[in-house]
Design a protein around this nucleic acid. Structure first.
Length: 774
RNA sequence: GGACGGUUGGCUCAGAGGUAGAGCGUCUCGUUGACAUCGAGAAGGUCGCAGGUCCGAUUCCUGCACCGUCCACCA
């Protein structure tokens, strides 16, 4: 007999264990018969293996719904879990811990630091796995992968080599985004723009060989001392006569030339721009176009370069103040606009202002790869849902893509697989900790006089190789000089370089010989659906498309489904600092996993925001209990009573014998058949919000409120119709349990377990692998 | 500067070319065979503004306003 109320905490763990023990999450492939039956595959967007679960992860409920639905259709269904080492994210969390102990990453050589982070991660790497189990996610845990597994890393590095061979990876000295606080460069995607109000200085430049000044507006006067050129727009009638003329650098007195380029906006400021190629993206491009010198003014420490005269070594802000003071003293500042608002790039993590620097980094040529990714969506090989909104975003980004900087100056991640011979590259700069625990740096040729190669390598922190340094992609002795003193690049790879290959590396693609890829790969690739939130459409989805198409000529997934974002009940993004975070595990413990799952899905439009409140979760908990009591009611009325299933007798009952009750029974069967079709259609079209809302309406307000009340009346007087009424109620219950199962797997499985023997053709299987109604 | 999304009852949100829906909240009534995590009933919306298409629009189109988001080298 069912209890009076549904108690999720008493059954969820038991049920999940039953599913796991039954190995239902592992796709059933008949031996030697991989093809034939079309599989359904989803790769879980790999969470940071180190992070506890948050509501964003709980949204993977949408994937569980799809997976459970397809499993019930009888398809071999794989939902593949994984965990990401999350390079920068993890290293920073770790560094915070170090900081609490008064230490920093510079106190350790890179190998020691790496090992420390590894151990740190090991402590809670199972945390979010256990949490996802709490929510009932039917992930195939037997295939779990961690992004730093040797096999995964090996595949990823092979891709690096292949890209390099194809000329799609290169080492370049280009302008990149550098965060002085994080001490590493970032890709363009990791830079956020914030509106700021900064002073706009109008600086006077004295003309050479003529009287008077020209004026240039700038927010960044501090690197003026390395400037060599100004620019105006050739179409600018007011200023274009200046092209070719010369002015005096207001800080150094050196001569500067004015060039013409149409990137200059005549309407901005005075229509004249100072060029600082090493520290401004636009200026860098112009400088390359016109072959202008690119001179550094700022170092990786966020300070003025040693050659900066009186400003050398000053921090940027201090240098700016000093420069302004000096210019003012010489009456070279015409005016200052203190209300100038502009967008500044900041680090997406720490919000420090990004310093564009021109340094040596590893890049991927993205244009050719992006072309594949664009074509695949244009031709419909991969569909993005919802299409209208996100395909446009996708194209816009890929069409304007710049080369991808994949170098990171951190230790937590696989190192770039390139090795420099120190004999051939004596000018290579090295930073290391010597035997006496002192930090030492300098060019190798100097260091090698005082320290052995072994000592340097043992204490190595980072290297910085000149742009013309020679390197090889094997760790073998130098092919040119035979030298054994080699050093591997200390830059590590952008995390997304790894996760961008996730479908390939986890499923067993063989890049040496694609024909020899695993049977697994051949069967499950391309995957069916990739479901994620829009925030990583570029970071991850677009990159997977590029890598997948480049390596296999096949898309990695047929559908990209964008799910909704969870916000609080006032529409605010959940964040710790706002204190509006609802923890998925806490509410699961309180109201049950099914209640949370439903709260994240019911009535939610695709890719919208979900205003999640505890009230909604309570409402959904109430629904689960309602469903439970529907079953309980039917059980009470049918136990030890004769039961007849009208469906089985339908052909043999003639219309003459239709009583009002029997007609009612027929109508109920027809009604639920229509419901199946409707729900199936909604699920197939990714309208999970509508599917669950419709089911909710039917279950509560049609079945419970109307039909059960009718039946209750009739069943007061036992007669020849009564067995049919009971049978019909059992039939409907059986059907709606199936329809509900993908959404609320625990409560449906538990009711199923307690009730299934009363159904027509009593099933023996658990609900999770029962057949979806046709 | 481009592009996109939103604007529907007190709150949070669904929805569709043809009498407006849900959850929560509010009000009234109701517990002797499921459920008070409940039932019966009620109040409450000129579906942002202005035009246009149509027999008919809140739903399609155009413009505007406000809110939000993404992209972008205006120094």
């Amino acid at each position: 007999m069912l209890d009076k109320a549904y108690k999720p905490n008493e059954v969820e763990e038991k049920i999940y264990k039953m599913w796991e023990d039954g190995r239902y999450f592992t796709p059933r492939l008949r031996s030697g018969q991989a093809p034939g039956r079309k599989p359904f595959t989803i790769l879980l967007p790999l969470p940071n293996a180190n992070d506890p679960m948050h509501m964003g992860h709980a949204m993977f409920t949408v994937e569980d719904i799809m997976v459970r639905y397809h499993r019930m259709l009888g398809e071999p269904t794989l939902w593949l879990p994984g965990g990401d080492h999350a390079g920068i994210e993890t290293q920073f969390v770790f560094e915070k811990h170090l900081a609490k102990k008064g230490q920093s990453r510079f106190d350790f050589d890179r190998n020691t630091l790496y090992q420390m982070i590894w151990d740190f991660c090991d402590q809670n790497k199972n945390l979010n796995r256990d949490q996802m189990k709490r929510l009932g996610f039917s992930l195939d845990w037997s295939r779990y992968h961690y992004s730093l597994e040797p096999e995964i890393v090996e595949k990823v590095l092979k891709t690096f080599k292949k890209l390099h061979e194809d000329g799609l990876i290169y080492r370049g000295k280009k302008i990149v985004n550098f965060c002085p606080h994080c001490g590493t460069t970032f890709s363009d995607l990791e830079v956020d723009k914030v509106e700021r109000i900064d002073p706009l200085y109008f600086v006077r430049y004295k003309k050479t060989g003529a009287a008077g000044y020209i004026t240039v507006a700038t927010t960044r006067p501090e690197p003026i001392f390395i400037d060599t050129h100004l620019a105006v727009n050739p179409k600018d009638k007011k200023n274009n006569k200046l092209i070719g003329s010369r002015v005096v650098n207001p800080l150094t007195g050196r001569e500067m030339e004015i060039i013409g380029d149409d990137f200059v906006d005549p309407k901005f400021g005075t229509g004249i721009v100072k060029l600082t190629p090493a520290h401004d993206f636009a200026d860098f491009e112009v400088a390359q176009k016109h072959h202008l010198p690119i001179i550094d003014a700022i170092t990786k420490d966020g300070r003025i370069v040693p050659s900066g005269g009186k400003y050398a070594g000053m921090k940027i802000k201090a240098a700016r103040e000093q420069v302004v003071q000096d210019l003012t003293a010489n009456n070279l500042i015409e005016k200052v606009d203190h209300n100038y608002q502009h967008a500044v790039g900041v680090c997406y993590r720490c919000k420090t202002i990004i310093e564009p620097l021109t340094i040596e980094q590893w890049f991927i040529k993205t244009k050719p790869l992006a072309a594949y990714a664009i074509k695949a969506v244009k031709t419909g090989k991969t569909k993005i849902v919802p299409k209208k909104r996100f395909e446009k975003m996708y194209f816009q980004w890929l069409e304007n893509i710049r080369d991808w900087n994949i170098s990171r100056q951190i230790v937590w991640g696989p190192r770039v697989p390139a090795w420099y011979c120190l004999t051939c590259n004596p000018h290579l700069e090295m930073f290391f900790i010597n035997k006496n625990k002192e930090r030492v740096n300098g060019p190798y040729k100097d260091l090698s006089r005082k320290f052995s190669y072994e000592e340097i390598i043992a204490g190595l922190q980072t290297i910085s190789a000149p742009i013309d340094a020679t390197y090889s992609l094997t760790g073998n002795p130098c092919q040119k000089c035979g030298g054994h003193h080699i050093v591997q690049e200390t830059d590590t790879l952008d995390t997304w370089f790894l996760s961008g290959q996730w479908p390939l590396s986890t499923l067993g693609f063989n890049s040496d010989n694609p024909q020899k890829s695993s049977a697994n790969f051949k069967y499950f690739y391309p995957t069916s659906v990739l479901d994620t939130m829009w925030d990583i459409l570029f970071f991850w989805v677009a990159r997977m498309m590029m890598f997948g198409l480049y390596l296999t000529s096949e898309v990695p997934f047929k559908v990209v489904h964008i799910h909704a974002r969870v916000v609080d009940k006032f529409g605010q993004k959940m964040s710790k600092s706002k204190g509006n975070v609802i923890d998925p595990i806490t509410v699961t413990e309180k109201y049950g996993a099914d209640a949370l799952r439903m709260a994240l899905v019911l009535g939610v439009a695709p890719a919208s925001d979900i205003a999640l409140s505890e009230e909604k979760i309570v409402g959904m908990r109430n629904f689960c209990n309602k469903l439970w009591n529907i079953a309980r009611f039917i059980e009470m009325f049918s136990v030890n009573k004769p039961i007849k299933f009208i469906g089985a007798e339908m052909p043999s009952i003639s219309t003459k014998d239709y009583t009002q009750e029997k007609a009612w029974c027929f109508e109920r069967i027809t009604e639920t058949t229509a419901l199946f079709k409707e729900i199936t259609k909604l699920i197939e079209s990714f309208n999970f919000g509508q599917a669950s809302e419709r089911l909710y309406q039917y279950t509560w307000h049609t079945f419970a409120d109307m039909h059960l009340e009718t039946a209750k009346n009739w069943l007061k007087n036992e007669n020849e119709n009564s067995p049919y009424i009971r049978g019909t109620l059992l039939d409907i219950l059986e059907r709606i349990l199936k329809l509900w199962h993908p959404f609320i797997p625990f409560v449906t499985e538990e009711i199923w377990d307690q009730m299934k023997l009363r159904f027509a053709n009593p099933p023996k299987k658990p609900l999770i692998i029962e057949q979806w109604p046709k």
